[in-house]
Nucleic acid binder design. Structure first.
Length: 801
RNA sequence: GCCCAGGUGGUGGAACGGCAGACACAGGGGACUUAAAAUCCCCUGACCUUCGGGUCGUGCGGGUUCGAAUCCCGCCCUGGGCACCA
């Protein structure tokens, strides 16, 4: 009989929806399990197969938890603000509002509802609806109240094509992540969130949160924690001093010059008269250069001696101060002590300008002519009282010694920068702040939220740096909540990543318009039990989210400080070994396959392509095989005589083995091998003389999380009521897994020479006797002395001659 | 340059100290059919073979072990992240 997936899937979609199978009672649930996946951006092109891949993998996990008895909440939403929609709307001459409504409708009704996921549509969010972004604005205000939102005039990344400010993370090797245009630096007043206040906690908690290692590693790199010391160098003949951060205080005796970043404010004050012109020119040049130019690889070192001197606190030596653009303003103190003997960059600089190079760390205690910087550990030399000390010990010893004279203190630095959250664009939540000439900057009173995004005919950005919202003059004028005088609204919108930094907090409380999240519901459902998404968000979305939750926790608004107890990064789905991309024209359209082979087949095939956490490779030919599998399963129930007979013998063993294997694999997201195991069980059932109902029902349950429609259909076909998807998950009996006889491989000197079938409990002597019967074993041991026998009962014998 | 993740048949991938290639795809042969499709059965790492079997084989080179795809050391290649971060 031919399997009609269209009719079957439509039928169960309707039944599940009408019955509310996917909508747990959020207040009454006894064993809550919050199964979260990264909500999509609803593009005009429609749902990408990569989304289906990610959602299916996450949904299987949720369905498995449900069958294991948990009350699973699996919501879905739309991350629809941002530059993408805005640019696309401008391109097609439409308004983002109507565009997004259309896209969301298409995503939800035509695509997401068809992929067989147990989404709770009663609790969806759309970040562009006022009832949602009211809370985005509210969160902004909470951050402000915590002292974590501040304004700073800063050199920011400006994309001349998108005509907006970009976060550091949105700049990939000096180009705009979205449009690939070369990014410029512009001085603008911006809103920042002080994520650096949480650098240590963000780093620390990585120790215990249960996340994919690749994601944790990416976050560690991004935070860039490094331990060292702050050293203080007096400036010769002046009151001021220069502070530097170093991870190698043990090399301080080798500091032969100092370097300040060109932007360092102290440069102006201490530059010698006769150097002013040269220094001024160098600083102007550095300012004009793009990040690309400044950081290009193997670029020759440049710099200028500013004619001032520092006193090395370790040996009292008078050393010159330079400025050079290889020292970055914005990391550490923006100044360094240069130790050319033990730092590659300082070495190159010293060579270029003929500055002295003094070896102070020696790998063997001897002196060397250095061809290159020695950056390893060793013994301290030319270091006064520290001579002979191992450099690892010296780090601490030097710091402590200088600390006594208040010239040093231990210090931890981070690479992480504060989060620029303002955007000079239209399509985002207006930043809920008011600028008053009398009162300064203050938040919009919470009862006046949301600050609605004004309807603008012309919302295109221009090159002035003046945001589109500034043109809505009536909207901008506002009464100051502080003094009642005339004031102006902030005309920036907030970064998209703020919308997605708390959406999961909102899901359980959707519909409550008087609170961001209900304390009861939140205590019950959060933190999220499992979060699945792409690792490309490791440094952006996932980092910002952790930060926002920590800040809300410290504000007393959340009872936990980590949002996701467990996070797993899924892999990338490729096509014929290559990355899918529109330009290559090798993008798989999931709609085609949902229509032609159905959701079950698509889900099975996607998950069969490879290990979910590593990714997989899609081949069009492959999916036909999966369709055949679904049909074999269907025909097993429809055509075969399914009988009420006991499950016995080999089939019984196979069934228990499959339950064990599939259960373990699903829990570890190893869906490809779980599917293979169900295939083996199906083959075992077909090989058996009869088709026992219990074996078939077990098989259906094992596949149910992956192929929800056909298993539900066949479950009822076998006369069952209710739904297969509420479980219970079948149990296996360990004792059924052992067989009476086993095939034991016989090796001679580690090479396989044959197998013997013996009782499971056979002793070494019995196995040896059987092994001697095998001709190929005989020929290998004939006339040789048996030196040793490795025997693992029931598993293996290795004869060493 | 540094840090991760990988490299296994024609292909996707299994196995993660103990029979390499589970499960599939593709290919070949057969059954059924007037024929084809569908379905079902068999074969399918390479080389040699007296058809019993033998030799080689998991990116490359070493090592540990009775035994290594798996552990260790040194390379090469692919993908991802960070990168003048002191």
């Amino acid at each position: 009989m031919r399997y009609d997936h269209r009719a079957v899937e439509a039928k169960w979609r309707q039944v599940w929806e009408e019955r509310g199978d996917h909508e747990p009672d959020l207040d009454a649930a006894e064993d809550p399990f919050f199964n979260l996946m990264m909500f999509p951006y609803p593009s005009a092109e429609g749902l990408h197969v990569g989304n289906v891949y990610a959602f299916t993998g996450a949904d299987i996990y949720g369905r498995f938890q449900r069958m294991c008895g948990r009350d699973v909440f699996e919501p879905m939403g739309f991350d629809a603000f941002g530059i993408h929609s805005e640019n696309f709307a401008i391109k097609i001459g439409d308004h983002p509002k109507t565009l997004i409504r259309r896209n969301v409708e298409n995503f939800r009704e035509n695509q997401l509802k068809r992929i067989g996921a147990r989404f709770d549509w009663a609790h969806q969010v759309n970040t562009t609806e006022p009832e949602y972004y009211k809370w985005t604005q509210w969160v902004f205000i909470q951050m402000f109240r915590q002292g974590l939102a501040f304004r700073k005039k800063a050199a920011v990344n400006w994309c001349p094509d998108c005509m907006t400010v970009l976060a550091d993370e949105q700049v990939i090797s000096d180009r705009c992540e979205r449009c690939d245009e070369l990014v410029e630096q512009r001085e603008l007043e911006q809103w920042f969130f002080r994520i650096t206040d949480y650098a240590e906690k963000l780093h620390q908690n990585l120790e215990w949160i249960d996340w994919s290692d690749i994601t944790k590693t990416a976050q560690r790199n991004w935070i860039g924690r490094s331990e060292g010391a702050l050293l203080r160098f007096e400036i010769d003949g002046r009151e001021e001093h220069l502070e530097v951060f170093t991870t190698r205080p043990d090399t301080v005796f080798g500091a032969t010059y100092m370097v300040m970043a060109p932007e360092h404010p102290l440069v102006d004050e201490i530059t010698a008269e006769d150097k002013r012109q040269e220094v001024g020119e160098y600083r102007a040049k550095a300012r004009a250069a793009t990040q690309e130019e400044r950081t290009a690889e193997d670029r020759p070192k440049t710099g200028v001696d500013i004619g001032a001197y520092c006193i090395n606190p370790a040996n009292g030596e008078r050393i010159p101060i330079w400025i050079a653009d290889y020292v970055l303003w914005g990391y550490g103190t923006g100044a360094i002590m240069a130790v050319p003997a033990h730092d590659e960059r300082d070495f190159a600089f010293a060579k270029t300008f003929g500055l002295p190079i003094r070896e102070v760390i020696s790998p063997d205690g001897e002196e060397h002519d250095l061809e290159e910087a020695y950056i390893g550990q060793g013994v301290m030399i030319h270091s006064g009282q520290f001579d002979g000390m191992p450099s690892e010990v010296g780090k601490k010893a030097v710091t402590e010694h200088l600390a006594e004279k208040e010239l040093a203190e231990p210090r931890v630095e981070y690479r992480l920068r504060d989060w620029c959250v303002s955007r000079q664009r239209y399509w985002g939540p207006p930043i809920p702040m008011i600028h008053c000439g009398q009162c300064g900057v203050l938040p919009v009173p919470e009862k006046e939220l949301p600050v609605l995004l004004p309807e603008l005919e012309d919302f295109t950005p221009d090159d002035s740096g003046r945001p589109p919202l500034a043109r809505a003059e009536d909207w901008v004028k506002v009464t100051c909540p502080g003094c009642g005088g005339d004031a102006r609204r902030d005309t920036d919108v907030s970064d998209n990543f703020l919308c997605s930094a708390f959406y999961f907090l909102r899901y359980p409380s959707v519909g409550m318009d008087d609170r961001a999240w209900d304390p009861e519901r939140t205590r019950k459902w959060l933190p999220v039990d499992m979060y699945i998404g792409g690792n490309e968000h490791a440094c952006l979305h996932l980092m910002y989210t952790r930060f926002v939750v920590m800040a809300l926790h410290d504000a007393g608004l959340l009872p936990f400080e980590e949002p996701f107890v467990k996070f797993r990064a899924h892999g990338l789905l490729t096509k014929d070994g290559a990355k899918m991309s529109k330009s290559k024209g090798n993008v798989v359209n999931p709609d085609d396959f949902l229509e032609s082979t159905g959701a079950d087949t698509l889900r099975l095939y996607l998950m069969f392509c490879g290990p979910f956490q590593q990714g997989g490779d899609w081949r069009d030919e492959g999916i036909a095989g999966m369709r055949r599998y679904v049909e074999r399963l269907y025909n097993l129930v429809m055509d075969d005589e399914v009988v009420d007979a006991p499950v016995e013998g080999e089939l019984e063993r196979a069934m228990h083995a499959a339950i064990k294997k599939v259960g373990e694999d699903l829990a570890e997201l190893r869906y490809n091998t779980a599917i293979a195991a169900t295939m083996e069980l199906l083959n075992a059932i077909r090989d058996a003389d009869t088709t026992p109902k219990q074996a078939v029902e077990t098989l259906l349950k094992l596949i149910a999380p992956i192929a929800p429609f056909v298993t539900e259909e066949l479950w009822h076909e076998l006369g069952n009521e209710g739904t297969i998807h509420d479980g219970p998950w079948p149990e296996y009996d360990e004792s059924k897994l052992v067989t009476d006889t086993v095939e034991i491989p016989i090796q001679v000197k580690g090479k396989l020479r044959g197998t013997v079938a013996v009782p499971t409990e056979a002793t070494e002597d019995e196995v040896m006797a059987a092994a001697r019967e095998i001709p190929s074993v005989q020929s290998q041991i004939e006339g040789k002395e048996i030196r040793k026998v490795i025997f693992l009962p029931g598993k293996l014998m290795n004869i060493v001659v």
